[in-house]
Design a protein around this nucleic acid. Structure first.
Length: 310
DNA sequence: CGTGTTTGACCCGCGC
DNA sequence: GCGCGGGTCAAACACG
């Protein structure tokens, strides 16, 4: 059983797709559709990842600059995109080995990058429920990203600790939706986990907000380990809820294959983007590969050929 | 005892 | 205004 993930567009504000989000070892598809307000959304991918404060700026400046443009220019793929149900847009697999259905989600209604103010607002809005006082300010939501993961388990390991705070039955779905919140005190990241109505084997994990902290689960392991050795890869993956090998779940034996060659939609024609963040994983797919020299964090960000060029 | 889950109640936004 | 559905709270409970 393989895990297949993707990112879907929450609320279907757009329909451009990253149909080839992740292929080979970890076939993940995604759409980081920033449409509607997306074109003017300056929210960098890494910012959305919540890693902007966690890693060295140059690398992520690059990614943040390139990724949105890729997103903006990423044309809808009529051959691989299938609207299964409205309003959410799903992506049918474009490749045989990538059966993940995915689309990207961002509810970044603002073109402003996420700032601390947003987090404060988020805290306020949560408290607001307890207080009868109602502000006239319309509730603002964090950017959301949804991954569709083909898995038997609902709650996938992503390196972060989550506390379930609610569960609701979903209309038109036999499967309930679970609500999780990052257990870290200062972190407001939430995620929803639900099974796809159209395909119960697919788990839709929707992340909302950004982690304000590194992944608390299992510190960086030694090189050559079976787990991620890259904080970036791990965090990037974890931020998006991508299963990593940092915490190989016993309940998920071989489901979670390392993802490599990932995020190809972001990657198409550019080879620079978040997908490179998962490049590292490939080393686990092909451990014998001597082509991959250790470039440290850079290797997690830059594709191999770029490293060679530099 | 600390942490996480369950679950009914409540709040809020939205459409009619 | 009302009802519906989504989202959240928080007490009770389970577990290691």
């Amino acid at each position: 059983m393989e895990i297949k993930e993707g990112v879907k567009m929450e609320d279907a504000s757009g329909n451009s797709s990253f149909s080839d989000y992740i292929a080979n070892c970890f076939p993940v598809q995604s759409i980081f559709d920033l449409s509607s307000e997306g074109e003017k959304n300056s929210l960098g991918f890494m910012e959305l990842l919540g890693v902007q404060d966690l890693f060295s700026p140059p690398l992520f400046d690059m990614a943040a600059q390139q990724v949105p443009s890729l997103i903006a220019t990423q044309p809808p793929n009529p051959t691989s995109t299938t609207k299964i149900e409205s309003p959410e847009v799903f992506n049918q697999p474009a490749t045989p080995n990538s059966s993940s259905i995915s689309s990207a989600s961002s509810e970044a209604v603002n073109d402003e990058p996420i700032k601390v103010d947003d987090q404060e607002e988020d805290q306020q809005k949560t408290k607001k429920q307890l207080k009868p006082k109602k502000t006239t300010q319309k509730r603002q939501r964090e950017p959301r990203f949804a991954f569709m993961t083909k898995s038997e388990v609902d709650h996938l390991e992503d390196g972060y600790r989550w506390r379930k705070y609610g569960q609701k039955a979903v209309k038109n779905s036999a499967f309930p939706r679970s609500y999780y919140r990052c257990t870290t005190a200062s972190c407001n990241v939430k995620k929803r986990v639900e099974r796809s109505f159209s395909d119960p084997s697919i788990v839709v994990t929707t992340y909302e907000g950004q982690h304000t902290h590194p992944s608390p689960v299992i510190p960086r392991p030694s090189l050559g380990g079976a787990y991620l050795s890259s904080g970036i890869s791990a965090r990037a993956a974890a931020t998006f809820g991508m299963p990593t090998h940092r915490t190989p779940p016993s309940h998920c034996p071989q489901h979670q294959q390392p993802f490599a060659n990932s995020l190809s939609p972001l990657n198409s024609g550019h080879n620079v983007s978040i997908n490179a963040s998962f490049l590292h994983e490939r080393r686990f797919c092909t451990p014998g590969s001597s082509l991959l020299k250790d470039h440290g964090l850079l290797q997690d960000i830059l594709p191999l050929h770029m490293l060679k060029e530099e």
